[in-house]
Amino acid sequence: MPTVNLTVNGKAVSANVEARTLLVNLLREQLGLTGTHVGCDTSQCGACVVHVDGKSVKACTLLAVQANGSKVTTIEGLASGDKLHPMQEAFREHHGLQCGFCTPGMVMSAVCLAQNHPNLTEKDVREGLEGNLCRCTGYHNIVQAVLAGAQAMRR
């Protein structure tokens, strides 16, 4: 079985994986990071979005071996200790989550979106979150949260 070495949430990890293991399976099943979720099998829902070398990536669409040598950040690694990341805080403040299942992927996508767009508009957010499905919120409060979170990240 191949060995993969990567940095996950700032910690160096090494794991033996079957070649067919997806990054999301490595995170959830071998590293116990169950905050990253699996909501579909066609790379549509985005519940599994993590950051790989600073880019938002659907962890169900990357083999674990492809992430070899990368720096991976999951939802568990976003806050600083007990202090929530401004995007997490904005989701809480604006009721941008209900059941919480899509939330980790939604937040990770939103952080990248905000980093890549200095002046996000509602249209940017709606189009930028096209790859993340939510069944609970009708997206209204997610959009509000992302706009507020992006502003807070710039402060």
Partner: peptide
């Protein structure tokens, strides 16, 4: 009132059945 459930869901600490 802001939801008390949110902290665990926002930090990946929720416990769903598959977790």
């Amino acid at each position: 009132v802001r939801r008390r459930e949110d902290y665990r869901f926002l930090t990946g600490q929720g416990t769903y059945t598959d977790d």
